[in-house]
Amino acid sequence: MNRVSHLLLIEDDDAIRTGLELALTRQGHRVSVAASGEDGLKLFKEQRPDLIVLDVMLPGIDGFEVCRRIRRTDQLPIILLTARSDDIDVVVGLESGADDYVVKPVQPRVLDARIRAVLRRGERESSDSAAFGDLVIDRNAMTVTKSGAELQLTPTELRLLLELSRRPGQALSRQQLLRLVWEHDYLGDSRLVDACVQRLRAKVEDVPSAPTLIRTVRGVGYRLDAPA
């Protein structure tokens, strides 16, 4: 991917914002910065960035709320900057629609790798399509339709669905999915998979609480089934 990606960094601490802006610019991204959630949402509407790096703890409206408001209209990738890897922030953030998260203090190399991995998820790679009941996945146009209506999927959700649909009826473990979708080079956080599956089910299943397409395989992971 040679195109310079345009990032929006929303972070309230001046030092961190400046440091990350420097580092990400140096990694070859074009970076816009905002110091609060409100400014961030305004900049987002004006500049339409490719990806948002979002701090969770913000004055005024917090990162979760920013995430939810963006998700109402847009499916662009969002990476959360969170304080701790094992607290409730991660779960809430992923439920708000974030695609990935990094823990402070974050190494710029790690953040850059995550950014590039998330951006790659939107790339098209093959030109066939597949149908599962009334769900049609067009890998050429990178669109998913359900009963003829196009679904708004984030790149991560789309990639997850593509990886599952490539192996219909075969169970994929969370670790496999983390490697395939998130490109985490070693053991990542399985909560990413669980949260993304929940969000995907909410969009593709008739009854999200009783899934017929994306099945949970106890003790293994997830599986995409063609409905009987």
């Binding site: 030092a15 990350l20 580092a23 140096r26 203090p105 974050v106 710029p108």
Partner: peptide, 20 residues
């Protein structure tokens, strides 16, 4: 520790640049 983390995050962000 929490207080230390904020300056450390900023410093870590630029260490790669300095190293390069």
């Amino acid at each position: 520790s929490h207080e230390l983390r904020t300056p450390l995050t900023a410093m870590t962000a630029v260490t790669d640049i300095l190293e390069d």
